[in-house]
C-alpha cells in the first residue's frame, strides 16, 4: 500500500540482501552438485573425469555412511529428548516463585553462550576424564568404577555435551511460552475442579505445543550439523562410532581429499536437512499472518 515511488524504492532496498543470499545459495550449491559427479581428489586435482552417480553410490553404500546416518539420528533424537523433556521440567520449575529466581535463570541459560569448542573440551577433560574428571571422581567416591566416556560410550558423551549446550535454549523458549499463558485460564480450570496434573496436561501442555514444535524444528536444523563438538573430542571415533554425516563429509574432504565423494555427501546432507526445513518453514510461514 504505497506509491509506485516507494514500491520501486522498496525493491531497490531489498535487492542487495536478496542478491547476495541468492548467490550464496546457488553458486556453491551448484558447484557442489557439479563436483559430486566428478572423480575429483586433491591429490590429482588436474584430472577430474565425469563419473555420473558413482560418488553417490560410493558414498551411500559405504558402511561408514550408514553408521554416520544412524549416529546422526541417535544424536538428534537423543538431544531432542533430553532438551525438550528437561526443558519442560526446568521451565515449570523456573516459572515458580522462589528466592533468587533471576540468578538461577542466569545459571541455567549460561551454557548456551559457551562456544562449542570450549563446551566440548571442558566436558571431555574436566568432567568426563576417567581419572581427573569430576564425574569419574564422583563415581569413585561412591565406590563405582569410573567410565572412560570418550572410548567406551563416545556417542552418548557427545549427546550429553550437546544436550547441555541446547538445554538452555529449550528452557528459555518454553519458559517464555509458559509465561504467556494467562493466569485466568489456569484459575478457570481450578474453579472447574481440575487438579494440578490435569491442569498441566489439558491446559499448560497444549498451550506450549507450538513452542515445543519450534524448539524441535530449530534444534534439529542445528543438530544435523554438529561438527566442532566431535572434532575436539572423539574425532568421530573410535572407528566411526561417533561420526555423524557432517563430520563424515568434512572428513572426506579434509582428511582424504576426496572432493567428489565429499560433494556427494554434502548434497545428501542438504536433502536430509531440507526434509526438516520444509516443515519448519511452513510452521513459521503460518505464523507470519497472525
Amino acid at each position: 500500500m504505497a506509491t509506485l515511488h516507494t514500491k520501486s524504492a522498496a525493491r531497490a532496498m531489498m535487492a542487495p540482501a536478496v542478491i547476495v543470499l541468492l548467490i550464496w545459495m546457488i553458486v556453491p550449491l551448484a558447484m557442489t552438485l557439479y563436483f559430486s559427479t566428478l572423480n575429483y581428489t586433491l591429490y590429482n586435482p588436474f584430472s577430474t573425469p565425469f563419473v555420473g552417480f558413482e560418488n553417490y553410490s560410493y558414498f551411500l553404500t559405504d558402511p561408514t555412511f550408514l553408521a554416520a546416518l544412524a549416529n546422526t539420528l541417535v544424536l538428534v533424537l537423543g538431544v531432542l529428548a533430553i532438551t525438550v523433556g528437561g526443558g519442560i521440567l526446568i521451565a515449570l520449575l523456573l516459572d515458580q516463585d522462589f528466592y533468587g529466581v533471576n540468578i538461577v535463570r542466569l545459571l541455567v541459560i549460561a551454557p548456551f553462550f559457551v562456544m562449542p569448542t570450549v563446551a566440548a573440551l571442558v566436558w571431555k577433560n574436566m568432567m568426563m576424564n576417567p581419572v581427573y574428571g569430576v564425574i569419574g571422581q564422583l563415581l569413585q567416591s561412591i565406590g563405582l568404577a569410573p567410565i572412560d566416556w570418550m572410548t567406551d560410550v563416545p556417542l552418548l558423551s557427545i549427546v550429553i555435551i550437546v544436550a547441555w549446550q541446547w538445554l538452555p535454549f529449550a528452557t528459555l523458549i518454553l519458559l517464555t511460552a509458559l509465561q504467556s499463558l494467562s493466569m485466568d485460564q489456569k484459575e478457570a480450570a481450578e474453579m472447574d475442579g481440575a487438579k494440578a496434573l490435569s491442569i498441566f496436561w489439558y491446559i499448560t501442555l497444549p498451550h506450549m505445543s507450538r513452542a515445543i514444535t519450534v524448539v524441535i524444528l530449530i534444534q534439529t536444523i542445528f543438530l544435523l550439523s554438529i561438527y566442532a563438538e566431535i572434532l575436539v573430542t572423539t574425532q568421530g571415533g573410535p572407528g566411526s562410532q561417533s561420526t555423524n554425516i557432517t563430520y563424515l563429509v568434512a572428513q572426506q574432504a579434509t582428511s582424504y581429499g576426496d572432493i567428489g565423494a565429499a560433494s556427494a555427501g554434502g548434497i545428501v546432507a542438504v536433502i536430509l536437512a531440507n526434509i526438516v526445513a520444509i516443515f519448519l518453514v511452513r510452521l513459521i510461514g503460518k505464523n507470519l499472518d497472525a
Binding site: M1, A2, T6, K7, A9, A10, M14, A17, V18, L21, W24, M25, V27, P28, L29, M31, T32, F35, I221, L224, S225, Y227, I245, T246, V249, A250, A253, I259, A262, S263, G265, G266, I267, A269, V270, L272, A273, N274, V276, A277, L280, V281, I284, G285, L288, D289
Partner: peptide, 27 residues
C-alpha cells in the same frame, strides 16, 4: 512496503539458513 511476495522472500531467506554448511563447504 509489503507486497504479495514479501512473505515468500522472508521464508526463502530463512530456508537458506537451513542449508547445511557442509553442503557448500567444498566450493
Amino acid at each position: 512496503s509489503p507486497t504479495k511476495r514479501t512473505k515468500d522472500v522472508l521464508l526463502w531467506m530463512l530456508s537458506t539458513k537451513m542449508l547445511p554448511a557442509v553442503g557448500v563447504l567444498i566450493p
